[in-house]
Design a protein around this nucleic acid. Structure first.
Lengths: 142, 142
DNA sequence: TATATTTTATTGCATGTACAAATAAATCGG
DNA sequence: CCGATTTATTTGTACATGCAATAAAATATA
């Protein structure tokens, strides 16, 4: 059923939820070959770009709660892709050599993902929608 | 951090995910007073409008997987808001009297929710965004 | 009619996410 | 310098969701 045929097609709850679920599925497919969920992959990419970033900053970047980020880091630590070091109350997250090796493949998955939805939706139209969504999201309370 | 400042502000994965999470939070607040999660509330509203609707159809309307709908129905059954009857392979979901009583309050929560985000985002702008999102969502594979 | 296929729904399992509470460290006010 | 507050992170718990497998009924096909 198309969302325009659903009885709640005018509701933001359904619109945002079903878009997010479909996009999540596309993303999962793209990163499956690396055995990573999209959120894990993006976290790792950020840590590769800025080694030592703190969980709280990662939470802001990823727009997830700090507790969720802790859980993501735990998973990546189990896979030996990142390590945490603590000094005082500050924690720093660093990529391991194994994590660093994944860098190029992560980037290529990200590119593949962007191209996948751009191909389906049109490059301009998806860029426009992303902008609109972000503008709206920024207005909503955190 | 605004999503426009995040390093993945141009990525559909982050855009759709963070919008959906924020909207979900708004919705949760609106339905909390009834002790229902938004998805449960919407399912119940549909069943009130069309008593006897089958889980599969509900899944299409809600744009959720059939298994998720089964779980939602189970929860609503525990709360004595709906009942299931089975004939053959077909299951029908009906509201209980207690479920029917909730009707008006459900509608008012839904109205409150729509007005909440409309007030923040602007009536026209949110309507436009919902339309854009739905158009895009319909293009994506199910 | 008997068997194969399709349809409908459910169940087992895994995962991602968040809230609230707990912990631990840093900072501030007196 | 000490107690109170704030900050950074983690933990316990709960929940929504989906996939893959299963079950059971209906339908098609030979």
């Amino acid at each position: 059923m198309k969302t325009s045929e659903s009885r709640y097609h005018k509701c933001m709850y359904f619109a945002s939820g079903s878009l997010a679920r479909k996009i999540e599925k596309l993303a999962i497919d793209c990163w499956k070959k690396l055995g990573l969920a999209p959120s894990h992959a993006y976290l790792l990419m950020i840590v590769l770009e800025e080694p030592g970033m703190q969980p709280g900053v990662l939470a802001e970047e990823l727009q997830l709660s700090p507790s969720t980020v802790t859980r993501l880091i735990e998973k990546l630590e189990e896979k030996k892709l990142v390590v945490r070091t603590s000094e005082g109350k500050i924690t720093n997250v660093y990529p391991t050599p194994k994590g660093k090796e994944l860098g190029p493949q992560l980037k290529s998955c990200a590119t593949e993902f962007n191209e996948t939805y751009s191909a389906i939706l049109g490059k301009e139209e998806s860029a426009r929608l992303i902008q609109s969504i972000n503008r709206i999201t920024d207005k909503l309370p955190s």
